[in-house]
Design a protein around this nucleic acid. Structure first.
Lengths: 238, 238
DNA sequence: CATATACGAGACTCGATAGTCTAGGAAAAC
DNA sequence: GTTTTCCTAGACTATCGAGTCTCGTATATG
């Protein structure tokens, strides 16, 4: 969007620090108040910049808002990048992924934007979609991959990796987003995230444990723990 | 709030139909657009009523909005009332509950409001809380009771009924709310709800199946599905 | 230095909306 | 029928915010 090489432009160049300050201020305000409540004046003031400077960097309020959404989307994508969980067990791999995802999705700015977007963006659906793809969408895709691999190794027994990924994601999130959104709970700590992820992963792995891990294991009389007692009905689920 | 018995007031009484029309119009508009975008004119027009009539029923925009939130909260509470799932199996009881809850929580007006509330109600936290209590809060409480009973009967093995209720609720919801909010999927059908609930309940029951239904069962070598292989790590969870 | 551009401060236009007021008609109570 | 209140239609005020303009100043390039 902003090709920052219109080089050889004489005169005083725009100060990129101002640009960043404006974006930072806008992120802060837009993630905390609905679109129409945030005034350009407020953005300018918060950025310690004059209103005209804001308009010199962004043609209008909407384009500023779009930049903010893009900015946060990019930040989410970047935060999702770092991997290096190759040698870990399935459980540890999932937990590391879960912690990384929740840490991002529960950050105040991301929370705020994701709450506002659906309501504020009737018509600007492309932006909403982009945001979703950078956040939850990316989580689901990555998770589905991870889960599919694990299933192929026989570590878990799943029907559909996408649906299973949704299950795991939901279990991680729990009521955290809803409660936090309603202001029912205070700031979310790393410890809370770690705890929720541990729990969610545990539930998930219990539900999707393979019927027989490695050796032959046949219990004639009763149901073998996980699947059988449920599978008489699970058959007709999905 | 509105004690509708200032009886013996001479002259023409207020038409309750107008009141309802205004509320209906406001519900429709507020659940679809952010607070500041909805104009009192629009409410009046939609209700086929003059603006003065709106102001004669509600002192200002905020009080109208509060009435709307209360109205939807009440409707949610009412919809949750009908029970009569006494004779059913645990699975069927859970599924009936899940379908009832999702049917309400995914309705366009409830969806819209619940999306807008967190952002629109900085400071009016009491209202947000009331809405939450009437919706998700009620679900969680009811579920926790159901689950606790089942646990006492030995039908499932749980640690904490509240947390387990959150798990089940999350599994039911899945990504439905997020995706629907982003406009990724079309209108939600009863079939979609039923399917999601069936799946979520299945996963839940698999995860929380009691360790050994009736007879003793000990596998020495490998992991006995649910607890053991996990417990080396689950031990430090929670 | 000359020139071109960035930035700040504040005044300004313009449109939109919350809320008020009035006048006249309609409908219920008595 | 009289009275009282409701309801409507539209004009009206006051406010607020988006976006523009101007002028003075700061700061870069050549």
């Amino acid at each position: 969007m902003r090709c920052f090489a219109p080089r050889s432009r004489s005169g005083r160049p725009k100060d990129p620090a101002k640009h960043d300050a404006i974006v930072a201020a806008a992120v802060h305000l837009f993630s905390q108040h609905p679109f129409d409540v945030v005034t350009m004046e407020a953005v300018a003031t918060q950025a310690r910049v004059s209103k005209m400077t804001v308009y010199s960097h962004f043609s209008d309020k909407e384009s500023l808002f779009e930049t903010i959404v893009s900015s946060i989307s990019d930040r989410m994508v970047a935060a999702f990048a770092a991997e290096g969980r190759e040698g870990l067990s399935l459980r540890d791999r999932l937990q590391a992924t879960g912690v990384a995802f929740l840490s991002i999705l529960l950050r105040p700015d991301v929370m705020g934007l994701s709450q506002m977007l659906p309501t504020a963006l009737r018509g600007r659906q492309a932006l909403t979609l982009r945001f979703y793809d950078a956040g939850p969408g990316r989580v689901k895709a990555a998770l589905a991959g991870l889960i599919d691999d694990a299933a192929k190794q026989g570590e878990i027994a799943i029907d559909d990796p996408i649906l299973a990924a949704e299950d795991l994601f939901s279990l991680w999130e729990g009521g955290l987003r809803a409660e936090n959104g309603c202001g029912l709970i205070g700031p979310i700590t790393d410890a809370m995230i770690a705890q929720r992820v541990r729990r969610g992963t545990g539930v998930f792995l219990r539900a999707y444990a393979p019927e027989t891990p490695s050796p032959g294991k046949l219990i004639p009389s009763a149901a073998p723990a996980a699947p059988a007692s449920g599978s008489t009905r699970i058959a007709r689920s999905d």
